[in-house]
Design a protein around this nucleic acid. Structure first.
Lengths: 224, 224
DNA sequence: CGAAGGGTTGAGCCCCTTCAATCTTAGTGG
DNA sequence: CCACTAAGATTGAAGGGGCTCAACCCTTCG
């Protein structure tokens, strides 16, 4: 969604406060009423919610350039939490201002809507991933997605990047246990699909990983 | 999201064609480029996608008043399919017209954005449901959600309604097998949480079902 | 040097799947 | 009006993928 000059100026004129947030810092608390929308300038963050037995579900990973809680501009009560994955630089923009710019500059509003739609598309893919794919496929799929998104955001190469997630967090993304995530990573390694060194992931054989994962990038709606 | 008179008039002035669609009729095909947005006037529909092994994931259920493919107004290529669950009356509105009304009447655009945000919130809950809850909890949660949404849409009572889904479809919503869905329904029945007669669900003990399901309705963002 | 967080590995179990058969109900044509 | 059919629901038996529990390792950092 390319914006015109006026629209871009309106966005740049938004009041904002830039803060540094440490790792595992809450950007939004479930049940809270955030006053600010958070634009990730650098670093990674994730959306999550807790279920009754205390276990956690991670429903999205965000990176540079993503707005992590645009929804709070309209929905008021946060239905889920957002935390940083790494230390982050975050621009805080008052929700009121976000609403106003969306109303006053329809193209800006449409761009934010667009961004929400892409998020929705990724949510659907995650539902399918965690509901209908095996553990191995889920992990493979997540590794593909992160690689492609990192490359699209110019944060690395899709087949060679540093994973910003612990195995515990990978487990919460995929609905598995950390123990099993570990075994699946090893299995992908043994298959020759990936190589690992600490958090550094090298996708040795992209086609093999893509096939295992049933990964088709259309749902990311990346510019062509 | 209440609209003013002008805004409402703009919506009512949208060109549209009303059609009847049979059960299991495709409203949107994955990979297609829909020309129309579909507003459900009566009946039920679902969003779905297929994975490599041929199994299906249902990512949303829609009912009267829902727009089932608003996203296609901006995203162009459909990343998933939409089918009717029952016979439906559907208003087809050209995607161009949807985009234009959103741009010309910012409040209308905001209302559509809002609707997308609520959909997103439900997607996140489904990720958590299918990833971190047991089979029994998943089914219980879905039954709660459908009841509450039906009641909110004035289509029935939350504790006594006709389920518009087959057990196969329930399975695709929850990431389970039809066989196991059947057993879980029986288990809820035996527990006294629900009673069943064909597709008619009576939630005999709402609090019990709610507790089993870990159901909290905040994520539906219903008006208070 | 000690502590803590994250990663790795093994053994046993169980929730859910798979496979297969049977039943019920609604619809259809003779 | 009834035999036939097909879709959906139900039930049983057996197997396996992922979980649980528990121990140990490695690295980083104070």
């Amino acid at each position: 969604m390319a914006l015109g000059t006026q629209d871009r100026d309106a966005v740049l004129a938004l009041p904002c406060e830039v803060i540094m947030a440490a790792r595992e810092h809450h950007l939004v608390r479930e049940g809270g009423q955030p006053q600010n929308a958070c634009l990730l300038i650098s670093g990674f963050a994730f959306r999550y919610q807790l279920v009754a037995d205390g276990s956690r579900s991670i429903s999205a990973i965000h990176m540079d350039g993503d707005m992590v809680n645009l929804e709070n501009s309209l929905l008021r009560i946060a239905d889920h939490g957002v935390k940083t994955l790494t230390s982050c630089t975050v621009a805080l923009i008052p929700c009121d201002a976000v609403r106003e710019v969306a109303r006053a500059f329809p193209n800006v509003g449409m761009a934010m809507w667009y961004s929400t739609l892409v998020d929705g598309s990724i949510f659907r893919e995650w539902i399918a991933n965690n509901s209908r794919r095996s553990a191995l496929e889920r992990i493979a799929h997540l590794l593909c997605e992160i690689g492609v998104r990192l490359e699209a955001a110019s944060l690395g190469k899709k087949s060679n990047y540093e994973l910003p997630l612990t195995q515990d967090q990978l487990a919460d993304c995929t609905g598995l246990t950390p123990v099993h995530v570990n075994r699946m990573l090893r299995a992908l390694h043994n298959d020759g699909a990936i190589a690992r060194s600490k958090r550094l992931i090298t996708i040795a054989d992209w086609d093999k990983l893509r096939l295992v994962a049933d990964f088709r990038s259309a749902y990311l709606h990346l510019p062509v």
